[in-house]
């Protein structure tokens, strides 16, 4: 680590916001990060999701987390979106570009990107 002072500044900026955030984020975005996911390109997808959630200002209502093998390795990278009271949405064959659209239209806009979901993807 080089600049711990810089990190201390982040703490000061974030301290208030974090308290607010707890318990509020209801949408869970889950990325499959087992060998199959990683080999298929899940790392840039996850990083794009984390970045976009922050950039598009939806970090108060959505969290990004990682999981193991979801069981559909041929469809990796797989991203699942869990919303309270709604059915789970499964996005398959994800890319960082698709991730940007999912955050904008689904997480921010509330409308799943149907063409990227498992039922609508031709393998």
């Amino acid at each position: 680590m080089k600049s711990l002072e810089e990190l201390a500044k982040i703490r000061e900026r974030m301290a208030g916001k974090v308290a607010l955030r707890e318990g509020e984020n209801s949408i869970r975005i889950v990325v499959g990060m087992a060998t199959c996911g990683i080999a298929a390109g899940a790392r840039p997808v996850l990083n794009a999701l984390v970045e976009e959630v922050a950039k598009q200002g939806v970090s108060d209502k959505a969290t990004v987390s990682q999981t193991g093998c979801i069981g559909i390795c041929q469809y990796e990278p797989v991203v699942e979106v869990f919303e309270p009271g709604k059915e789970k949405t499964t996005y398959v064959k994800m890319t960082p570009e698709k991730a940007v659209r999912v955050v904008a239209e689904h997480i921010k806009g509330g409308k799943p990107v149907v063409e990227y979901t498992i039922g609508n993807t031709i393998i």
Partner: peptide, 9 residues
């Protein structure tokens, strides 16, 4: 106490 997973971090 600020989580490591905070995007800014």
């Amino acid at each position: 106490g600020v989580p490591l997973s905070t995007p800014e971090v």
